[in-house]
Amino acid sequence: MTLLLADSLRCLPATSWDALSATDQPFLRHAFLSALEDSGSIGAGTGWQAAHQVLLGADGKPLAALPAYVKQHSYGEYVFDHAWADACHRAGIEYYPKLLGAIPFSPVSGPRLLGDPLAAAQLLDELTASLEPQGLSSVHVNFTDPAADALLQGREGWLERYGCQFHWHNRGYRDFQDFLEALSSRKRKQMRKEREQVAGQGIEFEWREGHQLTEAEWDFVYQCYANTYQVRRQAPYLTRAFFSLLAERMPESIRVVLARQGSRPVAMAFSLIGGGSLYGRYWGCLAEFDRLHFETCFYQGMAYAIEQGVQRFDAGAQGEHKLIRGFEPQITRSWHYLCHPGLRAAVADFLDQERAGVLAYAEEARTLLPYRQA
C-alpha cells in the first residue's frame, strides 16, 4: 500500500473519492471540497494548502482517505489552538506549518477517516511517521464521528479534545406549533413574540434550492455573507465563485431562505442538507431589523426541518442563545498528534482539565433548556 499526498482533488476522480464515504453528508463530497479549491477559497495566499492523505492499494485504487490541509495559521478551524501556538513561539518551537484533517470553515461533525477501517488505521500510522520528515509539527483531526473516535482512541500519541455545540432535534413534531407546545409557557410566549415582531415589520420568507437561484440572487447571497465579516473588519473566507461552483456541482444539497420586505431582499441564510440533517452555514443581512437574525437562522430552519421531516438542525458552532430556543448541548471531539514530546505532555495536562470543564458546562447548559419538565 502507498500513502499518496494529493495537493488537489483534481488528482482523484469524484466517483473514487465519494465511494470512500459511507454517508451522504454534503461536506465530504468531492463536489464541495473541490469547489473550495477551484474557487480560490483555499490555496495560494490563504494559509490553506490541500494535502489530502489517500492510501492506495496495489491496484492503485483508494482504500482510505483523510481530507487534509497544510496550515500556516489557525483561523477557520473552530477548534482553537492559538494558545498552543503562542506557547511554542515563546519556547522557540515551530508550530506552523501543521496538518489539519477537517472540512475548511465548517465546524460540522462527521466522518473524517474515510474508507476501510483497517486501511484507515494504516493511513494514520504512516501519516504520523511522515510528519517530521515533511517539516510538520503536528496533525489535528477536527469534529470526528464515532467511527473515527474508535480508531483514534488509545492510539499512541493521540490526544482527545472535547467541545460543545448546540443542535436542535425534531422529535416528530407535526408543525411549529406542536414544537411550541413542548416548551414551558414563558418560553413559548417569548418565542411567539419574537416571530410576531419580525412579521410585524413586513418581512416574509421564501425557501429555494440551489438550482432555483439566479446569478443575481447569488450575488445577493454573497453580499450578505461577506457583510457579516466586513462589519467586523475581516475578509470573508469564501470567494464569490465558491457559491456558483457549489450551485453547479451539488444544487440538490443547497437550501437558501431569502427574507424580503415587500419586493426588497434584506437577509438570507444558506444551508446544506443531507444525512438526515439540515446544516445552517452562513447568514447575513443588509439592514438592521429587530429579531431578524433569530427568525432567519433558527426558526425558519426549525420550521423547514419539521415540514421536510429532517431529524436534526445544526445551526452552527457557537451561541448559548440557542439554548432558550430549544437547541441542546452536544459534545464534539477532535484529536491531536503533537511531535514535540514536551508540548504533547503540556497539552495533555491542559486537555484533562478542559475536558472536565466542558462536560460540566454541557450539563449545566441542559438546565437552561426551555422544554416542559415531565
Rank of each mutant, 00 (worst) to 15 (best):
G274C: 03
G163I: 04
I203S: 07
S277T: 15
G210W: 12
R312L: 08
L123D: 04
D38R: 12
S21D: 14
L136C: 04
D178T: 00
A150F: 09
L368H: 14
W168M: 05
T46H: 14
E307S: 10
V141L: 15
A51P: 07
S138W: 15
W48G: 11
G135N: 00
H293W: 07
R29L: 14
A44M: 07
Y78D: 04
V221H: 15
V257M: 04
L245T: 09
G43Y: 11
M191D: 04
M191G: 00
A241Q: 07
E354N: 10
H82E: 13
T23V: 05
P111L: 05
I93N: 07
Q153R: 11
I254A: 10
I103W: 08
E295C: 06
P133K: 11
D349M: 09
G40V: 13
F32I: 03
F80Q: 11
W218V: 11
G275Q: 03
F166R: 05
P62M: 04
S109R: 01
D349N: 11
A35C: 13
F350R: 07
Y225G: 11
H336G: 07
L351Y: 02
A150S: 03
E320P: 07
S271F: 15
Y225K: 11
G110N: 01
H321F: 01
V257E: 06
L343T: 09
L28W: 03
I306T: 09
P146H: 10
V221D: 08
A287H: 01
R174Q: 09
F289M: 06
F313N: 08
Q300T: 08
E37D: 01
Y69R: 01
G57D: 08
Y282P: 08
P341D: 13
G154Y: 12
D314H: 10
Q49A: 08
G316N: 08
P329K: 02
L278A: 00
A317I: 13
Q49D: 05
G275R: 02
G262W: 06
G101F: 03
E363R: 11
A119I: 00
D24Q: 01
Y95M: 06
